[in-house]
């Protein structure tokens, strides 16, 4: 009896705290039915926002994966002075407020920033333009690939790499044929976290974007504009789409586990 009460309380709390918010998103989007909801997605500014979000995510994934892999290699394969400081440094963006993550780029490239005016004069627009959005997103998503790779690569040690080196393999061959295949699940997971965070980033991007519909609005910014403009259905439809994209990236991280389990069940 006591057990059922505990279950009821727990599920009640989960329902209120965790289940209701996503339900609200979908219900608000479909308030007038599916037709009107889908209609709002045809708005050219909305389509532009989706494209910009995909572009920004792609850039963040590529840059932070390449550099994240190299940094994880550096931090796990060598013991050198300054290593622990670097470990702290790459995790730093996680503890910085999104707004601050955007602000720093204005300090460097904004109209009153250190290099903003001269770059502006040379015709290079960074703040309140797409490059600024990219920089802010890159900053915010920087840690994810490294921090998922480092613990795993640390635990794997250097024996396999050393064996490969003695067999005559060069750096890229070791990385590509030995290290990364061994760490592929962690790498995959790190890339997906980067993706989810890049698509959903709001605060940092909001500061540097300039909010020009159709030009510098990513999906989260467009959702804000729509919501503040009382276009509730459009806002929640876009929110449903964005949440589905980000959450499928997060959920996809368990895919290797499912595949392995299914293979195990067959064998």
């Amino acid at each position: 009896m006591k057990k059922y009460l505990l279950w009821a309380i727990t599920w009640g709390l989960i329902g209120i705290v965790l289940l209701m918010p996503p339900a609200v998103v979908v219900v608000e989007a479909l308030k007038n039915g599916l037709g009107p909801a889908l209609e709002t997605l045809k708005d050219p500014d909305g389509i532009a926002a989706i494209w910009l979000t995909l572009e920004v995510s792609l850039v963040s994934i590529s840059v932070n994966t390449i550099f994240g892999v190299l940094a994880a290699w550096l931090l796990t394969k060598y013991r050198f002075p300054g290593r622990s400081a670097l470990l702290v440094l790459v995790e730093l963006p996680l503890s910085i407020s999104p707004v601050v993550s955007g602000l720093v780029w204005l300090l460097l490239f904004g109209a009153q920033g250190w290099w903003g005016p001269s770059l502006e004069a040379a015709g290079i627009h960074i703040a309140f333009a797409v490059p600024g959005i990219m920089l802010a997103t890159l900053f915010v998503t920087l840690p994810y690939v490294v921090r998922t790779l480092v613990p795993l690569m640390e635990q794997q040690g250097c024996d396999a790499e050393e064996a490969a080196m003695l067999a005559g393999a060069n750096f890229w061959q070791i990385l590509w044929h030995v290290t990364l295949p061994g760490a592929r699940v962690a790498l995959f997971s790190g890339i997906l976290l980067t993706t989810a965070r890049a698509m959903g980033e709001f605060g940092a991007v909001s500061v540097v974007s300039g909010h020009i519909p159709g030009l510098t609005e990513t999906m989260p910014l467009h959702i804000e504009s729509l919501y503040n403009g009382y276009q509730t259905v459009a806002a929640f439809t876009m929110a449903t789409l964005l949440a589905a994209m980000a959450m499928s990236a997060v959920l996809l991280r368990s895919a290797p586990e499912w595949i392995a389990r299914r293979r195990g069940a067959q064998a």
């Binding site: 609200v24 999104p98 959903g200 709001f202 959702i223 980000a246």
Partner: peptide, 12 residues
């Protein structure tokens, strides 16, 4: 809450 984009959590 970690997976849901913050803007979505906000309006929700």
């Amino acid at each position: 809450p970690l997976a849901l984009p913050t803007a979505v959590s906000g309006i929700t």
